[in-house]
Simulated assay, not measured.
Amino acid sequence: MQKITPFLWFDNQAEEAAKFYTSIFKNSKINAVTHYGEAGPSEPGSVLTVEFELDGVSFVALNGGPTFKFTEAISLQIACETQEEVNNFWNKLTADGGAPSQCGWLKDKYGLSWQVVPTALPRLLKQPDAEKANRVMAAMLKMTKIEIAELERAAA
């Protein structure tokens, strides 16, 4: 069991969101759904929490009502080996009301922020040639979805 589990607050879409996320990531599943009882505060029988895994990482989604919203102050980062993988996650997470942002960031249709980052980016930024690393950073800062080929051209 992992010691720290991200806990995501939704208005009333916890189960819908968990199903959406588990449909996107391999090795993912919903483990448990709990429901509100007579004590409330929501309608008895409505979903309280959903425990789920995304590629082996545990999460809990809560239907806590409209009090709190997601912000970019917290995001989930996806490490991608290939451009195909970047494109796949990017397209699925921006679908149906998601919104792209800058430098590989996006918000999904629930307002949760994600960073879709190719593993090539940190590798190219950490290289010993500072001039090349600066060109990679400058190229990345102009991007919405990160393009590996453009980063590699900048590093050449």
Rank of each mutant, 00 (worst) to 15 (best):
N134Q: 15
A95L: 10
E81H: 11
A39T: 12
I24L: 04
C103Q: 08
M1G: 15
A32W: 10
P122Y: 03
E84T: 07
F70P: 05
G111E: 09
R153N: 10
I78F: 13
G37F: 04
V136T: 02
R153K: 14
W90E: 06
T5E: 15
V57F: 10
I30K: 04
I78N: 13
M1H: 14
L121N: 09
E152T: 00
T119S: 13
N91C: 00
N31P: 01
M1Q: 12
V117R: 12
P6A: 08
T5F: 13
N31T: 08
K19Q: 15
E38Q: 00
G65Q: 07
I78V: 15
E147W: 03
A17F: 01
I24Y: 05
F89I: 08
A17G: 03
H35A: 09
D11C: 12
D55W: 02
E150W: 01
A139C: 13
G45V: 05
K69C: 10
M140V: 02
K132V: 08
E81S: 09
I148Y: 09
K29I: 06
K3R: 12
C103K: 08
Q83D: 10
I30C: 02
D108L: 05
R135E: 07
R135Q: 10
P118A: 06
N134K: 15
E72L: 00
E16P: 05
A79K: 08
Q2H: 13
M143V: 07
S42M: 07
V50I: 02
I30M: 04
F68R: 12
V33G: 06
V136S: 00
V136G: 00
V60S: 08
K109V: 07
V116H: 05
P41A: 11
N63T: 04
N91P: 01
V60G: 03
P128I: 13
A61R: 00
N88P: 01
A138F: 05
S113P: 00
K107D: 07
A155N: 04
K142E: 13
Y21P: 10
K3T: 14
C80W: 03
A155C: 02
V117N: 15
K107H: 11
S46A: 10
W114K: 11
V50N: 04
N134A: 15
I24S: 05
K126L: 12
E38R: 00
K126F: 11
A32M: 14
A32H: 15
Y21L: 11
Q127R: 09
E72W: 06
F20M: 02
S58A: 09
T119D: 12
